[in-house]
Amino acid sequence: MVSQAPQLAVKAEALVKNFGETAVLRGLDIELPTGEVTVLLGANGAGKSTLLRVLSMLTQIDSGSISMFGADIAKNGPATRALTGSVLHSPMLYADMTVRENLMFFAEMYRLQNIAERVAETTAQVGIEPRLDHRVRTLSHGFQKRVALARSLMHNPELLLLDEPESGLDNLSVARLGRIIDDYRSSGRTVIMTTHIVEHALELADRAIVLNYGKVGLNSAFPSRDKDEILAAYSSTVTAQ
């Protein structure tokens, strides 16, 4: 069973993931409390997206352990997936179905009640109502990303995993995304996101983690105070490539 009032949203210990000869996560340890917005920073190949895929349970680790809200994800797959919402690189939508059809279909996959109401609420939240009956194929990448965000919010997950969510979004949509993240934090839920827009992310986040070649290079619970240190650590991972 997933416990009701856990302290940690995510506890990952000694995570190792290799793709063939390439080590992507190399004994990574993190502990993320509930109710925090954590931003993952690092150069390309640092392991940010792989870590989010592992936490989304799309990629299996080679060794290590992960618990979410007190439950081991290896033993509680479907129950833990019900607690997470993910927006990864690709929008992962059916191109020949409309926005509404996509959202209603995925609402069925999440076994939601009052599907029409949930679709209306989340589409209003991300501002995609005007194109609900447009086929996804006809929409821009940025708009598709917003649909993916709506899908990830529909089941009110306790943990939101966002992989470069602002990519392809216009300024208005980025501001809307910021409000959604703020709402999440104020309701005691947890957000983990990756980004390359570092300064903006540090304003938004409660915690910044700089990944360096699959390990935690720096973990700051005060990103605004430690801004210079974080920027220096981030820059060093980028320039070291």
Binding site: P78, T80, A82, P91, M92, L93, M109
Partner: peptide, 14 residues
């Protein structure tokens, strides 16, 4: 190709 298999895998279904 559309990545939708992964979207299905994200859902809390076996």
């Amino acid at each position: 190709e559309g990545g939708t298999l992964e979207a299905l895998m994200l859902a809390p279904i076996s």
